[in-house]
Amino acid sequence: AVYRIHLTHRQDDNNPARSAAVQPATLIMKVIDSSPGNRAVFKPLHEREVLFYNEIAPVLDLASVPKCYYAHFDEEAGKGTILLEDAGKPTHKGGLQKDGFETLTASQAVLAMTELGRFHGRSIALSSKLPRDLSRPLDRSIEEIRAAFPSFKKTWTPLLGEEVIGRYERALEAYEKVWLVQKDTFVQGLVHGDYRLGNIIFSAEDGQRDNVPDRDGDDLDNAHAFESGVKTSVARGYQEATTSNGDSQPGTVAKSPKGLVTPGIPTTSNDTTINGNASPNNHPNTPTKLFTFKHVDWQTVSRGPVLFDVAYLLSMSITTETRRGCEFDLVHAWYTACREAAGAGNDQFFLSADLNISPCVREISAACVAVVLVSVTTMNNFRAPEVPMRAVAGKLRTVSEMLVDWRSFE
């Protein structure tokens, strides 16, 4: 269960410096389920999240990660508690709506990818200062996925049809041949592990919903105002150099796979080159209405192929139409931010000097296979009377379309 606690502060005449402005006004309290049946599952997730907040987040120093004020696991009661900085009231509702799943706008997705690239880049640059033992906590074995597939197929074939189920079957084959064989050779860093809308909180700083639309991709004016607000807000938290990383190699843009098109969305963040060389005036000082942007729920953070997170967001949080319209921009936003963050302030550039977008596209394509199979193990016996099956089926179809567009089987 997750609670927001509104705080009031006692007047402290002896210490006027501790004004209300520098004290939190709200806290988030996460309480981990302590029922015996769930304890074995939740305890490692709780420990993983606490490790992230206590030991990893301070090293990464990202403004987009909420502060953790307190964490404790009571072994006897089997109960874990985490107190976090409030990530704000989301400008999106998140989760399942009446007619489908809520998705990110194109502009929100660009921001999310940029911040994700920053997280990955910093984790690569600061790798030696982070805990070594961070293997994926809940890695699904091929046996588990194979075992789950028959009931997944039985549940969803009537709603998805043979063609879509066929994509899942091919993904099952490709999991061993493509993903498991290659994943350890892909760009390695910290992986959020569950990087989708719901774990990315966009919110107005004053806590209002501010009429930011919940529709995907169709109110770009509002989204751009929103984007510029987030940029200002995020920029306040970053003091990194935005100068060149010294890489003079010409960037090579991958030949776009089928479905990847140069986008039509205008963004104000295109002032960096493909080499990650930023233009001098990257962070606008013009104050705009501020928005906050937080990544939450670090229960599945691990070391691994970072482009898994990119594939996860592209598959799970954007409509097919929005994704097809801007996915090259999204990958480019991730790539640029990752290179900048990996290079900033470090003598050694940890990303391979010859890494360009082309291998990134290949790694995302392979990661799609792993991402869609998350659906199989989590939705194999899905039955929930309160949730429209048709909406979930629409989501599963959207997820499967990544496999085709990104030619994940080749």
Binding site: V2, T8, I28, G95
Partner: peptide, 21 residues
């Protein structure tokens, strides 16, 4: 545990139940 229960238990009214998932 509901927010109402927590508020009553603590004698406050500043806790709301939210979902970050």
């Amino acid at each position: 545990i509901t927010a109402e229960w927590l508020n009553a238990k603590l004698g406050i009214n500043t806790i709301e139940h939210i979902s970050l998932q």
